[in-house]
Simulated scan of single mutants.
Amino acid sequence: MDRIPLPKLTAAEISNIWASYMTDSMSICGMRYFLAHLKDDRIRAIVEFALGLAQNHVTKLAEILRLEGYPLPAGFNDQDVNLEAPPLFSDNLILMYIGHMAKLGLSSYTLTLTTSVRKDVVDYYTEAITTSMELHNRSQMLGLEMGIYVRPPVIPIPDQIEFVHDKAFLGTVLGHKRPLLGLEINHLFHNLKRNALGKALILGFCQVAKSDDVKKFFEKGIRLSQKQIDIFTKALQEDSQPAPMLWDAEISPSVVSPFSEKLMMFHVSALIASAIGQYGASISGSPRKDLVLDYTRLAAEIMQYAEEGTQIMIRRGWMEYPPQSVDRRKLTHT
């Protein structure tokens, strides 16, 4: 029986598959390096699981691209990782990193699934969501067991329902601020956790980077992360809410780079992109005006930072062209 030909991939599908291939090829490099140095067998089992997922993803994504006749991205390979480099991050930090990346994967895969229509692509991202959920749950449970995963704050249970009758609910930029809503606490807490982990990662990258422009880019990222940490910590503490821990002390003094600067720049750019999306969600879930202003200002700052990173990657020839439409103007003008 002849096989029914698959419809062409949509713009969203090919773009998402391309981006997933790039990210998973990067993840393989990271997981292989982590496994070369991990001492805790419980964390090792989770990283091995994460590595297996990334390798399986790359294989399946490559097959979809081949069926489409689309050239495989260069992505990242053995040239982008130095397994002989000394440990740069502690076992505990690696576990928290794995959990964070699983969260990002879940968020990305869910959005991607909703914009996919071809069956093989839908099936792929459905499975990716399921396995990423398992990775997230396993890393979170181990973090709780080890006492290094900080639980989000709790809020009191009200005696009765209450309706909003005062425009003070929206707050002001200056002056008295109402108590934080549970959802606002959630966004502040998790944005703070994400920045604490991101700062540690960039701090490690900055420590091993050799090129002046790349090192300066990472130094600016450290400052921006700390600024955001300070803003979110202040907002939580003013509401008598706890702030999560920082991870700076979990970086070794090694100055030998385990990764190529191309990989490190790509990784930081991916984290910036996810942060911009998270701030958009935070704005929609934070009615208080001062929080909206903070998120809007910070999003604009990291968008500028992202552009600086893109310029470095273009100048160095490290940035692959994502899938794009045909330049009709170029074709019709000689």
Rank of each mutant, 00 (worst) to 15 (best):
P7Q: 15
G105P: 02
F205I: 01
L201I: 03
W318A: 05
L271V: 10
E307I: 08
L144Q: 10
I276F: 07
I229F: 06
V122S: 03
L106P: 01
L331G: 09
V154C: 13
L331R: 15
G143P: 04
P158T: 12
I155M: 12
P156Y: 07
I222D: 01
G317Y: 05
D40K: 09
P5D: 07
F205L: 06
G309W: 11
D213C: 08
S20K: 04
P7N: 15
M264I: 01
L183E: 14
K60Q: 11
M133I: 04
G143S: 09
A281H: 02
I98W: 10
L113E: 02
D41K: 14
T112N: 12
G182R: 12
P253M: 03
E308S: 08
L263S: 02
S20N: 09
A54T: 03
I14M: 08
L192T: 02
Q237E: 14
V122D: 01
F189H: 00
Y125E: 00
G198V: 00
K199G: 03
T130H: 10
V154D: 13
R66Y: 14
T110D: 04
G171Y: 05
P253N: 12
Y125N: 02
L72N: 06
K227M: 08
T296M: 13
G285T: 11
L203I: 02
G75P: 00
S107E: 06
F163H: 10
S225V: 01
E250D: 15
I28Y: 05
W318N: 04
Q304L: 12
V214H: 01
L67Q: 09
K39R: 06
N56V: 00
Y149K: 14
N195S: 09
I64D: 00
G317A: 10
S139V: 02
P152C: 08
N77K: 10
A235M: 07
V47N: 05
G221T: 03
S90T: 04
V117A: 14
L293K: 11
A11D: 10
M26G: 12
A196P: 00
R118F: 03
N186C: 05
H333M: 10
I272H: 11
A128T: 01
Q278W: 02
L111N: 08
S282K: 03
R66D: 15
Q140T: 14
T126Y: 08
G30W: 02
F266R: 10
E84C: 04
I148K: 12
P86E: 03
R118N: 13
A235N: 04
Y33S: 01
W18Y: 15
S282G: 06
M22S: 13
P287F: 08
C29K: 05
I312N: 05
D212Y: 07
M101Y: 07
S25D: 10
T332S: 09
N16T: 13
R138T: 08
A50E: 03
F34S: 13
V208Y: 10
G30N: 08
R44G: 02
R328V: 10
R32P: 00
T296A: 15
M31H: 12
P244A: 01
R223N: 06
G75A: 12
D78M: 04
A196H: 05
D91A: 00
S108N: 06
L180I: 14
F34P: 02
A209N: 04
T59I: 14
F266I: 06
D290R: 07
S286I: 09
W18K: 12
K216W: 01
P158D: 11
L67G: 10
P323M: 12
T23E: 09
L298G: 00
P5K: 12
S25K: 14
K167N: 13
G143E: 06
Q55W: 04
V268S: 11
I161P: 04
